[in-house]
Design a protein around this nucleic acid. Structure first.
Length: 335
DNA sequence: CATTAGGAGAACA
DNA sequence: TGTTCTCCTAATG
């Protein structure tokens, strides 16, 4: 089933120059909330879909498609031989990336009527949308975990972070120990069977997920080859890379990062007065979980996080505002 | 009850 | 070594 997803991503990589525009990635606001889809507490991973063996539906970005379009999407994913064939293209790169291979092979198969063309157009749009969402989700995870998008580059600590993240996200039993001391390179070299051997409960899921990350990384590389014109994907990645540099992050920096992305994290932390640097933690448990993920501290909670914030009092980094309110703090030096 | 405050020591890079 | 993590007691609303 991972192949279907992989095919979808890789197949769309070619269409991305045309298809993966801001417009096509533009999805109604309610359905493109990375914080929501990656949220540990509130997300509803489609485990049922996973168990049914529905390709791709375990991706969080598919949540929005589940309602009306799910059946259609499943049909497309399973029925299209082009999607299965797409990974083959990896071996023989095309000269004209603008031509979507999926469309090509379908046109050869049947003589397309108007409705079929219509359907193909929709398929293309869905593909672009899905790929865009996958990239965005991966980008979000990278920033949060402070890891690179390409699993090959992960060290053992990065691998553990990714495992913890994926396990939380899909409510999997903790299997980090089974993959201890493995680098991203090791992980990428492992077959599905090896994953299953190490973790019979969730090895398959983890392998499938890693496959998506690998495909996305491959696609990114693919897109960045050739011309220098940046695609949406590239912008996402480079943005992700920029935050992956430097020393271990400080808590106050992390909080600021969250505050700077109200679209993603506005539900758990937000400014009360940005000019004065006053902010409120709306969901203490959630923020603590995010911090724990970032620092690879599964046992993090608000009690400990707030203790760390209090250490900032005497350092003059964060203080309580003049009128003290619960869960409200203030940066001593606002931006 | 969750939050706040701060002491103390361990853990970590 | 500085920062954070962890655990703790006590106070507050």
């Amino acid at each position: 089933m991972a192949n279907s997803v992989r095919g979808l991503i890789e197949g769309a990589a070619y269409g991305s120059r045309l298809g993966l525009t801001e417009d096509s990635v533009g999805i109604p606001d309610q359905s493109r909330e990375p914080a929501e889809s990656w949220d540990l507490g509130e997300t509803k991973p489609n485990v049922e879909a996973l168990e049914r063996g529905v390709p791709g539906l375990y991706l969080s970005c598919f949540d929005m498609l589940l309602t009306e379009e799910a059946t259609w999407l499943v049909k497309v994913s399973e029925g299209s031989s082009a999607l299965q064939a797409a990974p083959m293209l990896r071996m023989e790169p095309r000269e004209e990336p603008e031509q979507c291979p999926v469309i090509d092979s379908q046109e050869q198969g049947l003589s397309p009527g108007l409705e079929v063309q219509e359907e193909e157009r929709s398929l293309e749009q869905v593909q672009s949308m899905v790929v865009g969402e996958v990239l965005k989700d991966i980008e979000t995870a990278c920033k949060l975990l402070n890891i690179t998008p390409d699993p090959i580059e992960w060290n053992t600590s990065n691998v553990q972070k990714w495992l913890l993240w994926t396990e939380h996200l899909y409510r999997l039993p903790h299997a980090g120990k089974a993959f201890q001391d493995l680098t991203g390179k090791d992980l990428c070299a492992m077959s599905e069977e090896e994953f299953h051997q190490r973790s019979p409960q969730c090895g398959d899921t983890l392998h499938a997920h890693l496959d998506i990350w690998k495909s996305a990384a491959w696609m990114k590389e693919r897109c960045s080859m050739g011309d220098t014109k940046t695609t949406v994907g590239d912008e996402l990645w480079s943005e992700a890379d920029s935050s992956c540099s430097g020393q271990p992050i400080h808590l106050w920096q992390f909080l600021r990062e969250l505050l700077l992305k109200p679209h993603n994290y506005g539900r758990c932390i937000r400014w009360l007065n940005k000019d004065k640097g006053i902010f409120k933690i709306e969901d203490s448990a959630h923020v603590a979980r995010l911090w724990g993920l970032r620092k690879n501290r599964p046992a993090m909670n608000y009690d400990k996080l707030s203790r760390s914030i209090r250490q900032y009092y005497k350092k003059g980094i964060i203080r309580k505002p003049d009128v003290s309110q619960r869960l409200v703090y203030q940066f001593v030096h606002p931006v």
